[in-house]
Write a protein that binds this DNA or RNA. Structure first.
Lengths: 196, 196, 196, 196
DNA sequence: AATGAATGAGCCTTCATTCAT
DNA sequence: TATGAATGAAGGCTCATTCAT
């Protein structure tokens, strides 16, 4: 379907070149159609990239929530580590989507800004709730130190952000070592040491 | 001096709108000159923004290294915390520079890319060396668990990256709480527990 | 067809004002379109003028070769004289094309230079072959002195060049007298004097 | 003297790139001054290039007339041949001036046009008179066929034009052979055949 | 005599968009 | 659904030129 191919190419070029340089004409050329044909499917350049963005978020959201929900029976540590793992895997396995996402998140045409921010924080809310469950249970089960769940959530989100940023800058090998180290330190920090 | 005013306005508009939307003509208008006058001082749009970028890096570099070197007599913990503090303070006190920096780091015209990446990693090397000193001493003094210094550096850089990213997204109050929490967890993770 | 009209106007303005002064915007104005519309048909200013130039050469080539081939039954003298005549007629009847041609041949944007020179010498090769036939037969039939055919070709091309240059500088009447005289002298020079 | 250096560089760049591309700023750069300094010596770009052109013509004029007057004692044939030789030598020994001259003669900014044409034809008048002397004597001495001197002049000028044009297009070696052949044919045409 | 600063005019080009077909 | 033609708006850039110093 042409409509989807346009969206995919738009996403790819967004990843490579950012919003401004991802020209409708260059997208059209790569799709193999003429520029005005895009307007048969999308009202606007903005419209097209909002669609791209919504897809990106949805895709990411399904991936992460699915991953988390599929490991209902692991320990708290396993679950959290799994989230990090899935975060890394998601971005490493489809770097184009991540690059695309990044461009949209950092440099936006002013008109798109509000819409994007909105879906962006919706996303975070969902993730926060998932984490809240895990952390609450962790404290209940006395696997984690007893501390405000909101803070735990915040610190975990911060960890994810840090990893996300590194993921953009470093090569895969270098990056993976860093993740392991950071995770281990993170875990040793929040867990309740029973046996020490 | 007009040359500097141009650079400042360029930086400001870069922060607000990104490279593509920071038009030479809009910069000129804000400076109060006509567009072609910019070419009396900068060869290019690229040239101008490379100057902006170099300034940004230099400024940041001096700030951080100065901060670190000025606290030679603190404990390891104090030193590291000071770095985080200074990182936050730097970005919070001049959000425009940070925004500018971010735009350049994430969405670049292809030609600038190489130059920027280069100065970027130079920066990291310098910071790494500063950290190496601190961590080495920390291990010597048995304040830190004995672990590979390179890993400690990597994990601290990751912490900084995470904080940096959050700093871009959250309001000051919300952000500060997160930093405290993350730092405390980080520290508890790497410090050697003597008394447990 | 707009594409052709653009080419024609470009040719006309080239004749009048040369490459640099034949502005895309002035061409567009004369065609009755807006400047960017030109880009729907030609990739470039260069591209447009290459098209103009190719047309010019092709047109000239067809005219001359046709003329020569149509007088298969004349004498050698008639044939050569016919070529001169046609040369004059071609340029006199469409001075604009000639002027255009001249501008391109003498003052070129550096990028066009190579392409133009190439098509230019292709042209000469073709004409040389036509002349070779005529001169060879002339010598065979003992109408011409026995002398290297290559030299005869060279001298005739030189004659054509001279006439071409004068044609640009003089008025028609003055010019025509000169041609007659030059031709007569040329012919008396190369023809075999029966009584020698 | 700076004024002269400007003129020389202007001439050189004119030869290389034509009037439009011979920018005041590029001239200034090659001279080693700043662009506005040119205005201390020349009112205008036009003014500068008119000076260049006048120099060019004067230089050429002195060269040719001197050459001709210096061979008062040769035969008519020798004199004419000498003119051709000097024409070739002049252009071959300083191709830059010739190129410059050509650019000005063929593609001119409209304002310069009239002035240039005028000095141009003044030049031709002088040369014509020199030739008139030679041809008249040639006829008197019965070395040349008895024919209208004006026609002889015209035909010789045409020969010179032809050679001039070839000189621009061909390499020196190729060019020299052509000149010899053309000259011989020319001479055999106008000379009185003793045996007729 | 020389120049730093500034500018009006203008050029080539690209882009998103429209509209008739 | 698709496109050829056209365009308004704008962008980066260059150039000749001026003027105060």
């Amino acid at each position: 379907m042409t409509k989807n191919k346009i969206k995919e190419v738009a996403c790819k070029q967004l990843a490579e070149s950012g919003y401004e340089r991802a020209t409708l004409s260059s997208i059209a050329k790569e799709v193999g159609i003429k520029t005005p044909s895009i307007y048969a499917f999308y009202k606007n350049k903005e419209d097209l990239f909002m669609a791209v963005y919504k897809d990106l978020l949805e895709d990411y959201y399904f991936y992460i929530t699915n991953s988390v929900q599929n490991i209902t029976d692991g320990t708290v540590k396993e679950k959290l580590y799994q989230i990090i793992k899935e975060l890394c895997h998601y971005h490493l396995s489809q770097p184009e989507k991540t690059a695309s996402y990044t461009k949209l998140a950092f440099v936006l045409p002013p008109t798109l800004n509000d819409d994007v921010r909105e879906t962006f924080s919706e996303m975070e809310v969902v993730l926060s709730e998932l984490l809240r469950d895990i952390f609450s249970k962790g404290i209940e089960q006395e696997v984690l130190k007893n501390q405000p769940v909101d803070d735990l959530i915040a610190s975990f989100l911060c960890l994810m952000d840090g990893i996300f940023l590194e993921l953009i800058y470093y090569q895969e090998a270098k990056f993976k070592r860093r993740v392991e180290q950071t995770w281990s330190i993170y875990w040793n920090g929040i867990c309740k040491k029973l046996d020490e």
